[in-house]
Amino acid sequence: MSSPNTGAWREFGPRSLPVPLEAALLCFAEHGYHGTSVREIAARAKLSVPGLYHHYPSKQSLLQGLLDLTMNELLQRSEQALAEAGPAPVDQLDAVVESLLRFHMSRREQAFVASTETRSIEDGYRDTYIGYRDRQQHMVDGIIAAGVGTGDFTAADPKAVGRAITTMCVGVSTWYNADGASSPDEIVEQNVGFARAIVGYRA
Protein backbone atom coordinates (compact mmCIF):
# COMPACT_ATOMS: atom_id res chain seq x y z
CA MET A 1 0.00 0.00 0.00
CA SER A 2 1.32 3.45 -0.92
CA SER A 3 2.43 5.86 1.78
CA PRO A 4 0.16 8.90 2.17
CA ASN A 5 3.25 10.99 1.37
CA THR A 6 3.88 9.23 -1.94
CA GLY A 7 4.30 11.83 -4.67
CA ALA A 8 4.64 14.68 -2.17
CA TRP A 9 7.74 15.83 -4.07
CA ARG A 10 5.38 16.96 -6.84
CA GLU A 11 3.37 19.22 -4.52
CA PHE A 12 4.38 22.82 -3.88
CA GLY A 13 2.68 25.23 -1.55
CA PRO A 14 3.58 28.89 -1.12
CA ARG A 15 7.12 29.71 -0.06
CA SER A 16 7.61 29.71 3.70
CA LEU A 17 10.96 31.45 4.06
CA PRO A 18 11.86 33.47 7.16
CA VAL A 19 10.90 37.11 6.60
CA PRO A 20 14.50 38.38 6.14
CA LEU A 21 15.25 35.66 3.58
CA GLU A 22 12.02 36.32 1.68
CA ALA A 23 12.96 39.99 1.49
CA ALA A 24 16.51 39.13 0.39
CA LEU A 25 15.20 36.73 -2.25
CA LEU A 26 12.93 39.33 -3.82
CA CYS A 27 15.69 41.95 -3.82
CA PHE A 28 18.32 39.59 -5.24
CA ALA A 29 15.91 38.37 -7.94
CA GLU A 30 15.07 41.93 -8.97
CA HIS A 31 18.42 43.72 -8.62
CA GLY A 32 21.07 41.02 -8.21
CA TYR A 33 23.20 40.42 -5.13
CA HIS A 34 25.64 43.24 -5.83
CA GLY A 35 22.86 45.63 -6.82
CA THR A 36 21.07 45.16 -3.48
CA SER A 37 21.91 46.95 -0.24
CA VAL A 38 21.30 45.67 3.27
CA ARG A 39 19.15 48.76 3.85
CA GLU A 40 16.87 47.75 0.95
CA ILE A 41 16.49 44.23 2.34
CA ALA A 42 15.71 45.57 5.82
CA ALA A 43 13.09 47.96 4.44
CA ARG A 44 11.43 45.17 2.48
CA ALA A 45 11.41 42.97 5.57
CA LYS A 46 9.98 45.88 7.60
CA LEU A 47 12.95 45.72 9.94
CA SER A 48 15.59 48.21 11.01
CA VAL A 49 19.10 47.49 9.79
CA PRO A 50 20.20 46.52 13.33
CA GLY A 51 17.09 44.35 13.60
CA LEU A 52 18.03 42.58 10.38
CA TYR A 53 21.61 42.11 11.57
CA HIS A 54 20.26 40.49 14.73
CA HIS A 55 19.04 37.59 12.56
CA TYR A 56 21.62 37.67 9.75
CA PRO A 57 24.90 39.51 10.44
CA SER A 58 25.70 40.32 6.79
CA LYS A 59 24.32 40.35 3.27
CA GLN A 60 26.46 37.29 2.54
CA SER A 61 24.83 35.40 5.42
CA LEU A 62 21.43 36.16 3.88
CA LEU A 63 22.57 34.72 0.54
CA GLN A 64 24.03 31.66 2.23
CA GLY A 65 20.91 31.08 4.32
CA LEU A 66 18.76 31.35 1.22
CA LEU A 67 20.95 28.93 -0.74
CA ASP A 68 21.00 26.42 2.13
CA LEU A 69 17.20 26.26 2.26
CA THR A 70 16.86 26.19 -1.52
CA MET A 71 19.37 23.42 -2.14
CA ASN A 72 18.19 21.27 0.76
CA GLU A 73 14.61 21.40 -0.50
CA LEU A 74 15.74 20.58 -4.03
CA LEU A 75 17.80 17.59 -2.88
CA GLN A 76 15.09 16.30 -0.56
CA ARG A 77 12.53 16.34 -3.37
CA SER A 78 14.92 14.70 -5.85
CA GLU A 79 15.87 11.97 -3.39
CA GLN A 80 12.22 11.26 -2.62
CA ALA A 81 11.40 11.09 -6.34
CA LEU A 82 14.28 8.67 -6.92
CA ALA A 83 13.29 6.48 -3.95
CA GLU A 84 9.74 6.15 -5.26
CA ALA A 85 10.69 5.48 -8.88
CA GLY A 86 11.58 1.81 -8.56
CA PRO A 87 14.62 0.00 -9.97
CA ALA A 88 14.29 0.72 -13.70
CA PRO A 89 16.80 3.38 -14.85
CA VAL A 90 14.30 4.99 -17.23
CA ASP A 91 11.75 5.39 -14.44
CA GLN A 92 14.42 6.86 -12.18
CA LEU A 93 15.50 9.26 -14.94
CA ASP A 94 11.90 10.35 -15.57
CA ALA A 95 11.30 10.93 -11.86
CA VAL A 96 14.44 12.95 -11.15
CA VAL A 97 14.07 15.04 -14.31
CA GLU A 98 10.44 15.73 -13.41
CA SER A 99 11.47 16.67 -9.87
CA LEU A 100 14.12 19.08 -11.12
CA LEU A 101 11.73 20.66 -13.60
CA ARG A 102 8.89 21.10 -11.14
CA PHE A 103 11.23 22.61 -8.55
CA HIS A 104 12.68 25.09 -11.02
CA MET A 105 9.19 26.13 -12.11
CA SER A 106 7.56 26.23 -8.67
CA ARG A 107 10.53 27.78 -6.85
CA ARG A 108 11.61 29.84 -9.84
CA GLU A 109 12.94 32.88 -7.96
CA GLN A 110 14.95 30.76 -5.53
CA ALA A 111 16.32 28.58 -8.32
CA PHE A 112 17.18 31.65 -10.41
CA VAL A 113 19.11 33.29 -7.57
CA ALA A 114 20.88 30.01 -6.72
CA SER A 115 21.96 29.66 -10.34
CA THR A 116 22.94 33.24 -11.14
CA GLU A 117 24.54 34.29 -7.86
CA THR A 118 27.12 31.50 -7.67
CA ARG A 119 29.63 34.21 -8.57
CA SER A 120 28.70 36.11 -5.40
CA ILE A 121 29.40 33.28 -2.95
CA GLU A 122 32.40 33.92 -0.73
CA ASP A 123 35.18 31.34 -0.45
CA GLY A 124 34.24 30.15 3.03
CA TYR A 125 30.88 28.88 1.77
CA ARG A 126 31.80 27.90 -1.78
CA ASP A 127 32.71 24.28 -0.96
CA THR A 128 29.39 23.79 0.84
CA TYR A 129 27.42 25.07 -2.13
CA ILE A 130 29.44 23.04 -4.62
CA GLY A 131 28.78 20.00 -2.43
CA TYR A 132 25.03 20.55 -2.80
CA ARG A 133 25.32 20.83 -6.57
CA ASP A 134 27.57 17.79 -6.80
CA ARG A 135 25.07 15.66 -4.85
CA GLN A 136 22.36 16.55 -7.34
CA GLN A 137 24.60 15.98 -10.35
CA HIS A 138 25.89 12.64 -9.04
CA MET A 139 22.29 11.50 -8.66
CA VAL A 140 21.64 12.15 -12.35
CA ASP A 141 25.01 10.74 -13.43
CA GLY A 142 24.46 7.57 -11.42
CA ILE A 143 21.10 6.91 -13.06
CA ILE A 144 22.58 7.35 -16.52
CA ALA A 145 25.58 5.14 -15.77
CA ALA A 146 23.24 2.43 -14.45
CA GLY A 147 21.10 2.67 -17.59
CA VAL A 148 24.15 2.35 -19.82
CA GLY A 149 25.23 -0.65 -17.76
CA THR A 150 21.89 -2.41 -18.26
CA GLY A 151 21.76 -1.53 -21.95
CA ASP A 152 18.68 0.68 -21.54
CA PHE A 153 20.65 3.81 -22.47
CA THR A 154 23.21 4.19 -25.26
CA ALA A 155 24.90 7.45 -24.19
CA ALA A 156 28.57 7.36 -25.18
CA ASP A 157 29.59 9.91 -22.52
CA PRO A 158 27.26 9.55 -19.51
CA LYS A 159 28.80 12.44 -17.56
CA ALA A 160 28.51 14.90 -20.44
CA VAL A 161 24.93 13.75 -21.01
CA GLY A 162 24.19 14.18 -17.29
CA ARG A 163 25.46 17.75 -17.34
CA ALA A 164 23.35 18.52 -20.41
CA ILE A 165 20.19 17.18 -18.76
CA THR A 166 20.78 19.05 -15.51
CA THR A 167 21.52 22.28 -17.38
CA MET A 168 18.30 21.85 -19.37
CA CYS A 169 16.27 21.47 -16.17
CA VAL A 170 17.97 24.32 -14.30
CA GLY A 171 17.46 26.62 -17.29
CA VAL A 172 13.69 26.39 -16.91
CA SER A 173 13.91 28.93 -14.07
CA THR A 174 15.15 31.60 -16.51
CA TRP A 175 12.20 31.39 -18.91
CA TYR A 176 9.23 29.70 -17.27
CA ASN A 177 6.09 31.84 -17.06
CA ALA A 178 3.06 30.60 -15.14
CA ASP A 179 0.87 32.47 -17.63
CA GLY A 180 2.70 31.07 -20.66
CA ALA A 181 1.33 28.85 -23.40
CA SER A 182 2.56 25.56 -21.88
CA SER A 183 1.39 24.13 -18.56
CA PRO A 184 3.85 22.63 -16.07
CA ASP A 185 2.63 19.13 -17.00
CA GLU A 186 3.24 19.83 -20.69
CA ILE A 187 6.72 21.19 -19.97
CA VAL A 188 7.52 18.10 -17.90
CA GLU A 189 6.28 15.75 -20.60
CA GLN A 190 8.27 17.50 -23.31
CA ASN A 191 11.51 17.74 -21.35
CA VAL A 192 11.32 14.18 -20.02
CA GLY A 193 11.11 13.19 -23.69
CA PHE A 194 14.20 15.29 -24.42
CA ALA A 195 16.07 13.61 -21.54
CA ARG A 196 15.19 10.16 -22.80
CA ALA A 197 16.42 11.10 -26.27
CA ILE A 198 19.67 12.54 -24.92
CA VAL A 199 20.53 9.35 -23.00
CA GLY A 200 19.60 7.19 -26.01
CA TYR A 201 16.80 5.32 -24.27
CA ARG A 202 15.86 2.04 -25.94
CA ALA A 203 12.17 1.43 -25.31
Rank of each mutant, 00 (worst) to 15 (best):
M1C: 06
S2H: 12
S2I: 10
G7P: 10
A8Y: 09
W9P: 03
R10K: 13
S16I: 01
C27G: 03
A29I: 00
H31D: 15
T36R: 12
S37Y: 06
R39W: 01
L47P: 01
L47M: 15
L52H: 02
P57D: 15
G65A: 04
G65C: 04
M71I: 01
E73D: 15
L74R: 12
Q80H: 10
Q80M: 13
A85F: 02
V90N: 09
Q92K: 15
A95N: 08
V96W: 06
V96R: 12
S99V: 01
S99C: 11
L100Y: 13
L100I: 03
R102F: 07
F103L: 14
F103T: 11
H104P: 01
M105D: 05
R107D: 09
T116K: 09
T118Q: 15
I121N: 00
E122Y: 05
E122M: 08
D123Y: 06
G124E: 01
Y125D: 09
R126W: 05
G131S: 08
R133A: 12
Q136V: 11
M139Y: 00
D141V: 09
I143E: 03
G147S: 11
K159M: 14
T166Y: 12
V170T: 13
V170A: 08
N177V: 05
D179G: 13
G180Y: 10
S182G: 01
D185G: 03
Q190I: 07
N191I: 03
N191Y: 14
A197T: 14
I198V: 12
